[in-house]
């Protein structure tokens, strides 16, 4: 296992965002965390990257405890995150954004090689290297954010909602690139609200609801599970305490996406 998360609890102030969340990711897998808005998917990734600290539980990455390591050290260990909402540095150029992605590395030749690899995955970025990142379209910003996360040469790449705000065509493109990245040897942990797309490319899935893992298994089993079917076809909200109306709208949203795809 490249990553083992064991019973982590995360709090924001007095509000508990994660309850005893456990899951694992094996080398070279694509694992997806799906679930409605507010289920704790992003919080889980933030905990892995050290942006929030679990109050209890363990995060073991490549056999070593991660939950007390500073965020900037975690990147050095080969765990990189492309955050929700892209979070590119809008006033920096595309090239500077990618350079920041390689901040932990010093070998110029290797950085140049990574840059070439990123341009192979995202040829459109190469045409825009001198442009301020804020002038890119949403899809280009998503590609920049993913390219930037790859510049540290991660062994484990965390992707938070890479499909958010993208047109269906771009979503297809981004997901194809995720598969390419994975085939090239990078393990991927993918957080998605677009469950159908995530389940289409992942090996295994965990379903989160109200800060708990409510279901885990191979994607085929998850896809056929009546509760997931129900949740993502929008009839019933996910069978977990505290899934509010947000879950309902989310289910409706993914149903309409399903329909577009069909």
């Amino acid at each position: 296992m490249i990553l083992e998360v064991r019973e982590i609890d995360v709090f924001y102030g007095s509000i508990q965002a994660l309850h005893q969340v456990s899951f694992e990711v094996a080398e070279r897998e694509i694992v997806t965390l799906i679930g409605p808005n507010g289920a704790g998917k992003s919080t889980t990734l933030r905990a892995l990257s050290g942006l929030v600290r679990p109050r209890s539980g363990r995060i073991i990455y490549q056999g070593r405890e991660l939950s007390r390591v500073p965020a900037h050290e975690i990147v050095r260990r080969g765990l990189s995150q492309c955050p929700e909402g892209r979070r590119v540095f809008v006033n920096l150029t595309v090239l500077e954004n990618l350079e920041m992605g390689a901040y932990t590395r010093s070998d110029r030749a290797e950085i140049a090689a990574s840059l070439e690899r990123v341009f192979r995955h995202f040829p459109r970025l190469k045409e825009r290297v001198r442009q301020a990142a804020g002038t890119l379209s949403g899809g280009e910003q998503q590609m920049l954010a993913m390219g930037r996360a790859l510049m540290s040469r991660p062994r484990l790449l965390l992707l938070d909602e890479p499909s958010m705000g993208l047109s269906p065509l771009l979503v297809e493109e981004v997901f194809a690139i995720i598969q390419d990245i994975n085939r090239a040897g990078t393990t991927v942990l993918l957080v998605e609200q677009n469950a159908a797309m995530a389940l289409a490319i992942a090996n295994r899935a965990y379903v989160l609801g109200a800060g708990r893992v409510v279901l885990a298994g191979a994607v085929a089993d998850i896809r056929d599970d009546p509760r997931v079917q129900a949740a993502y076809l929008g009839d019933v909200i996910l069978d977990a305490p505290g899934c509010g109306p947000a879950a309902g709208t989310d289910a409706a949203a993914s149903r309409s996406r399903e329909e577009t795809r069909a």
């Binding site: 500073p70 995150q81 920041m100």
Partner: peptide
């Protein structure tokens, strides 16, 4: 590299942390 990191941090602390920048 330091100066670019300063500009990155001034835009987004958490995104800078995710780059491995010691904010």
């Amino acid at each position: 590299r330091t100066g670019k990191a300063m500009r990155a941090v001034s835009q987004d602390h958490d995104a800078a942390r995710l780059m491995g920048i010691n904010v």
